[in-house]
Amino acid sequence: MLMLANPRRKAVRVLVVAAACAVGTLQAAAPPAPDANALQIDQNIQSLKDEVLQFNRDAVTLEQDTLYPPYSRTSVYLGVRIGGLLVKDFSIAFDDGTPQTFNFTDDEGRAFLLHNGLRRMLRANLAPGPHRIRADFSAQYADAKPSDAPVTNHFEAIFDKGYSQTDLELTLGRSTRVAKPGLTLKQWSTTR
């Protein structure tokens, strides 16, 4: 028996069209009213979401304070400020420690570019005083050919860890339009 080619794809097309069209089609009577029970369940789930979020907030805060006490807490964030550049790999190390490497999917790479958001790469406990940070990255322009060599660079800097939590913002950017993409470091601390 001859079957329609890929009926599931066609069914999805129906979903797209139906989502944009009004409820019901040509009908004599008014469409049915929403189910009150369904609305009640929706409201209950919205309240539960709130409670689960509060729970997560409290649990994350306690876990963070336990694992990374404020006097030693050091957080590293990465941001990308070059349009169309998708970061693929990123590695980071403190002092003489072993580098930690992170791989990014294209979607994760694109998320950096949407609203200049930062991704927290890691948290570590560092004693107050000077520390060396080393970072490497590999990136690729979104329109690059597969044969094009990836954009890579290395970064190294010293920063002074204070007695309070420290946030390190590494930004992948370039100083001029023709300069090679590289990382810069900005150190943040919070006002209390």
């Binding site: 957080s75 964030y77 941001g79 998320a111 950096f112 609203h115 200049n116 958001g117 930062l118 991704r119 927290r120 970064f155 190294e156 800097a157 010293i158 920063f159 002074d160 204070g162 420290t166 946030d167 390190l168 913002e169 810069t184 470091l185 900005k186 150190q187 943040w188 601390s189 919070t190 006002t191």
Partner: peptide, 24 residues
């Protein structure tokens, strides 16, 4: 390279890295 002295941010303010991490 050496990082300059730490800049200060207000928790929940525009510079707060946690806020920008939430944006990501």
């Amino acid at each position: 390279a050496a990082a300059s002295a730490a800049d200060r941010y207000l928790p929940g303010g525009n510079d707060d890295p946690n806020l920008r991490a939430a944006q990501y």
